[in-house]
């Protein structure tokens, strides 16, 4: 089988977790495919040119608001699937000059636009950390994000926030609420033993007690905050691996353990993502864990996002667009309750 999905290539499915059936079922497809071709050993594949129809451009919102943090909004546009992928093309995705407001309890904050061409090199690193965008990209192109510089404009648990965006004649709206954070009972590191005798690579584990109310949604993120030999921090920001979105449909009110692989950025290029360490944490790592609580629409977005990214072009799945909570565009405006913890990786 010479077939990989984007998710596999990034190693994110490498050690599939069985905490919820979703991940398993993604694997089921791959296994069935392997079953087809393994015994026959005759499958082959080739590059082809596909002529895709044109579709009108849409705006895509990636916005979050968390307790004690200002809102962050990135506004991009869709591109034709096979559009060029050079840096100009990518930079052109970002929409600048938009008017972005966040309204809560009758007061409206107009968000400030911060563009990377105004940032010096050390601020770019901070911006990369805040947005998840790579330093290279931020330095090479003028990329604008929208946030509130006023320190009093930060998220509060239980509050509902309305988002209004207008740019290039389009208007987009959405609404989200920051749910109560759900703490993890404990977090730890455990060796994966993927290869015999390995004594350094492992996964992050956690125990959670789901509150006895139906409809809780969760998303996990982690960041290695220790440094490489050259002094760089291993991860510049929190990363959610694919398939780290859950709800309590099957686990309502239960206490149970789950594990997580190490996620990686598409635009990342971490040295550890190209060797055996891909997908794993390592003895010696310090992991900052961010367990987020999310609402139903946000759960729908992140879970369909995980599936969509993981199944890139895979005809074994029902084609499914990501379920957005944005009216007038695509993407997400997510209020997230946050619980933070730390794991020191020891065998």
């Amino acid at each position: 089988m010479f077939f990989t999905t984007e998710a596999q290539r990034h190693g994110e499915m490498r050690s599939s977790r069985a905490t919820l059936p979703t991940t398993y079922l993604m694997n089921v497809k791959l296994i069935l495919l392997a079953a087809i071709s393994l015994p026959l050993l005759t499958s082959c594949e080739k590059d082809i040119t596909v002529d895709l129809p044109q579709a009108p451009e849409q705006f895509v919102v990636e916005g979050t608001i968390e307790p004690g943090k200002p809102p962050f909004v990135i506004l991009t546009r869709t591109q034709s699937f096979f559009a060029p992928t050079d840096i100009n093309s990518i930079a052109n995705m970002f929409v600048s000059g938009a008017t972005v407001t966040v309204t809560s309890n009758g007061s409206t904050w107009t968000l400030d636009q911060i563009c990377s061409d105004l940032l010096d090199s050390s601020t770019i690193v901070l911006a990369a950390e805040a947005t998840g965008l790579s330093v290279d990209l931020l330095a090479a192109a003028n990329i604008c994000i929208y946030t509130a510089l006023d320190p009093s404009h930060v998220g509060v648990i239980g509050q509902t926030y309305r988002l209004d965006i207008s740019a290039e004649g389009k208007t987009l709206t959405s609404e989200t609420t920051i749910p109560n954070p759900v703490p993890l009972d404990s977090v730890w590191f455990k060796l994966a033993l993927e290869t015999p005798g390995d004594d350094s690579l492992g996964l992050a584990w956690a125990r959670i007690t789901d509150p006895d109310t139906i409809g809780n949604g969760y998303r996990w993120a982690a960041q290695r905050i220790n440094h490489r030999a050259n002094g760089e921090m291993k991860d510049l920001n929190y990363i959610s691996p694919l398939g780290s979105t859950y709800n309590d449909k099957y686990v309502n009110g239960l206490t149970f353990d789950f594990n997580e692989i190490r996620g990686q950025q598409f635009f990342g290029g971490n040295p550890e993502d190209n060797n055996a360490e891909q997908g794993f944490f390592k003895v010696g790592d310090t992991i900052a864990v961010k367990a987020m609580s999310i609402g139903r629409k946000e759960y729908d977005f992140y879970s369909t996002y995980d599936a969509n990214v993981g199944a890139l072009g895979d005809l074994f799945s029902t084609p499914a667009n990501v379920k957005s909570n944005i009216t007038g565009g695509l993407g997400i405006w997510a209020g997230r309750g946050v619980y933070l913890d730390t794991i020191i990786c020891v065998p």
Partner: peptide, 19 residues
Amino acid sequence: ATLPVQRYFIEGRLVSEFT
């Protein structure tokens, strides 16, 4: 077959938009 026509990026990952 149903193939994606557009793409966009969220959390730095490629998302497919089907028509």
